Each structure stands twice: as C-alpha cells, then as structure tokens.
Simulated scan of single mutants.
Amino acid sequence: MTAPLPAPLAPGHALVTGGAGFIGSHLVDGLLADGWQVTVIDNFDPYYPEAVKRRHIAAQLDHPRYRLVEVDIRDGAKLNALLTGDYSVIVHLAAKAGVRNSLTDPLGYQMTNVIGTQNLLSFAQARGIKPFVFGSSSSVYGNCPRLPWSESDLGLTPINPYASTKLANEQMGYVYAETFGLRFVGLRFFTVFGERQRPDLAIHKFARLMLAGKSIPVYGDGSSERDFTYWGDIVAGVRAAMAFASDPSKAKYAVFNLGNNRTVGLLEMIRQMEQVLNVKAQIDWQPWQPGEMRRTWADIHAAQIQLGYQPATDFETGLRRFADWLAVQP
C-alpha cells in the first residue's frame, strides 16, 4: 500500500540558508508568493561574483515578509545573536560548492560545510525548531557501481572532499533526529540547471564560452553522463520535503534523491546546446580530472512515493529556458 503524502503545509516562517544562491533564491520566490515569511542567511561567499547573487534577490529585498541576514554560518555566536525570529522550518542550502575547488581547499570545505551545518543543527535544537531540510548532493555516491543510485545503497565512498562533507552532514542529521528529536530530511540534488545557475557549472560556463566564440574544456573522452534536473523540479521537491519534515506522522529522519531519472551524455549535452544557442562548439579536450564522477543517475522511486515528487521539465525545455534567461544577462 502506498503511504499517504505529507499533509499540506500552511505558510509559516522559513529560515533559508544560502537563500541568495541559485536554488535558494528560486525557493524564496515561491515561498513569498505563497504567503510565507522568509528569513534568508547568506554571506555572499566570493566563490563567484557577489553581484550575481545580489541580482537574484533584488526584487525580494523590499518585500514586507522578507529579511536578509548577512552572516557566515561558521560563526555560531553571530547566528544565535542575529536570528531572533520564531521559525517554523529550516531549509539549509548554504555550503561551499564545487568539486574541483574542494580538492585544493579541503579544510575550508570542512569548516563551512561541516562546522556550519553543526552550528545550524545546534541552533535548531536550542530553539526547538524540529523540521530541518538539508541540501545534500548526488556526489555522496562517489563511483558507486550500482545504477541508478538508490538511497538504500550502503557503504558510500565519496571521492572528493566536497562529497565527504555532504555525507558527514547527513550522518549528523541522523544523530540530531535520533538523539535530539529533530525531523531531518536530506535531499541529494542531481546536477541542477536552469535560470540563475552558478556561472562555474558546465551548462552556464559552456554557454558563455560558446557565445563568445571560445573553446570549451571537455575532460576525459566525452563519455561522462549526468542526471540533469531542472531547478523548478528541485524546488518542488524541497517544498514537499518541508511538508514531510513538518508532519509528525512521517519518519523523523529520511534521505531522498531529487533527480530527473534519466541521464544525458556530455557530448549530447553539447549537441543540444549548439542547437539552442545556434552556435558551434569548439572543444578543447583535457585529461580526466581527479575527484570527478563519470556518471550520475538517480533512482527517484522513494521521493515519488513519499514526497509525491515528479520531475516535469525535460532537459531540452529547461535548456531553452536557460538560454532565454542568459540572453538578457549582463
């Protein structure tokens, strides 16, 4: 028998970390439109230009139910001092992002992603905020040979520092659910793309290079594949997870894959980008990079059954929406 879906979640007060970023800013747009009060935490990390994030939130700043708190999640004392609201749910999306940079700064990733998450979990415990939704990553699977990847896969072995921090955060979430009574939902995002995508990610980076007539770096032999997932589907999954974490009839700890349940090869991605952008790609072949996964593919059965998650945007449609957005960007 299929379990009932989480009870509908009435608007409350959401605390969203990383709320000026790609996924976070889209989530906040939807929450505000649906009557939520939203407090956003972001430290505008210089991983990519601050102006990009500022544009994401420009329309939100004057909203009467929106508050921006500029603070680093590594600073637990400041978090406690500045966050004085009565929050009904925490959505924790803030993190040092990017696989390759984590290879050269593993300590920095450990401090932000692990210590920062520890601070947020401790904050939730101290304030009695039980629903806690965490943005994890498909990278926790490493090069797991069983495809598609399922949440039931055990003995995961991440192959880069970024992934190891995400898996550590999931395990901390279990501790706080089991021992301290939080209701923790971890969401393993699979290669999110679309409007506002980070400029360092492949689709955005390749598109700008192609439109400028420059070559694009392709690592390995072009055989890598990704489970590309449109941001709108991811945000719908986050909203469903918020309801799940707020429903006392549901498990107090759960992890779900949020993907598109199909893969797109790297060369196929480039071919479709050529069609959408109406420009020919010049490929600069590079050796395989350490810490990079060759293939990602999500088994989304659990999210479909327990969250009602159903990706609705195919890769080509999402790519065209991204191209339309990019055409009006600085």
Rank of each mutant, 00 (worst) to 15 (best):
W36K: 02
N43G: 06
D105V: 07
V69D: 01
Y66C: 03
A59H: 15
E50N: 09
A81Y: 05
Y109S: 07
E70D: 06
A77R: 12
Y48C: 06
D105Q: 13
K96I: 01
L68Q: 06
K53W: 12
V71W: 04
F44L: 11
P49D: 09
G76V: 00
D72R: 08
R74Y: 04
I57D: 01
G98P: 06
P49S: 04
L61V: 04
R74N: 12
R55V: 02
R67V: 02
N80W: 08
I57E: 01
L68N: 05
H92G: 07
D75Y: 04
P46K: 11
G85Q: 03
L103R: 09
T39D: 05
T112V: 15
V99W: 02
A58H: 12
V40W: 04
Q60D: 06
V91R: 03
G108A: 10
Y66W: 12
A81P: 03
L61R: 13
L93I: 04
W36C: 02
G98Q: 08
A59D: 13
G108I: 07
Y66F: 15
L107Q: 14
R54T: 03
D62Q: 14
V52D: 13
Q110P: 00
L68I: 06
L83Q: 06
D45Q: 10
A77N: 09
Y47H: 11
